[in-house]
Each structure stands twice: as C-alpha cells, then as structure tokens.
Simulated assay, not measured.
Amino acid sequence: MRIEVHIERLVLDGLPVSTADGPRVRAEVESELARLLVAGGLNRDLGGARAVARMSAPQISVGPREQPDAIGRAVAASVHAGIGASE
C-alpha cells in the first residue's frame, strides 16, 4: 500500500517551534502520519483521494526544549487519532 501525505499549511499555535524549524516539523509530520496510516489505515468516512480542509484532533503536550522531530511525531499521532481507522 502506498500513502502520500502532503501538508500545504501547518499552524502550530503555542508550540516551541521557530520559523527555521517549521519545514523540519512539517516533513516529520508527513512521514510519520504516512507510516501510521499504512500501519493502521484510514477512517472509512475519509476514504479515497481527497483533501480534508479541517479536522479536530486531541491536544498534544511537548516540553519547551522539545526537538522539532519529536514535535512532528506528536502532531502526527494526534492527527492520526482524528483520521485513523477506529479499532
């Protein structure tokens, strides 16, 4: 199975991410979310190739010195909780 994730705009209010770290966080979100979707699938209500304009996801907690890659993985896990297949 091949899944491509492209994030056009990612708004991270209140997270310790600099403008310079933004691309690194976005890349990590894309790759980790793709990995999670391959492993766990997509919610049936969202099936097919389509854009999702907005979604709700659980809040994440990160420390003030959290690395951009770790922040990206936490964001991806939260997004996956909102769009991933239900158990």
Rank of each mutant, 00 (worst) to 15 (best):
M1T: 05
M1N: 03
R2F: 03
E4S: 03
V5Y: 02
V5P: 04
I7Q: 04
I7K: 06
R9V: 09
R9L: 08
L10I: 05
L10K: 05
L10M: 05
V11N: 10
L12R: 06
D13G: 11
D13S: 15
G14M: 05
G14L: 07
L15R: 06
L15P: 06
V17C: 08
T19M: 11
G22P: 00
G22W: 12
P23G: 08
R24G: 06
R24C: 01
V25M: 10
V25E: 08
R26W: 10
R26L: 15
R26T: 15
R26C: 14
R26P: 11
A27D: 13
V29I: 14
E30M: 13
S31K: 14
E32K: 15
L33E: 13
L33K: 12
L33N: 13
R35C: 10
L36N: 13
L36Q: 15
L36E: 11
L36D: 12
L37F: 09
A39T: 13
G40S: 13
G41D: 11
L42E: 11
D45W: 08
L46G: 09
L46Y: 14
G47C: 07
G48T: 09
R50M: 07
A51T: 15
V52P: 01
A53D: 07
R54H: 11
R54T: 10
M55K: 00
P58S: 02
P58R: 01
P58V: 04
Q59C: 08
I60Y: 00
V62N: 01
G63K: 04
E66Q: 03
Q67R: 11
P68G: 01
P68M: 03
A70K: 07
I71D: 02
R73V: 03
R73W: 02
R73M: 02
R73N: 02
V75I: 08
V75R: 02
V75A: 01
A76Y: 02
A76E: 03
A77D: 04
A77M: 01
A77T: 05
A77P: 02
A77K: 05
A77Q: 08
A77V: 00
S78V: 02
S78A: 06
S78D: 03
S78C: 03
V79F: 04
V79Q: 01
H80L: 07
G82F: 04
I83A: 01
A85V: 03
A85F: 00
S86M: 12
S86V: 15
E87F: 03
E87S: 09
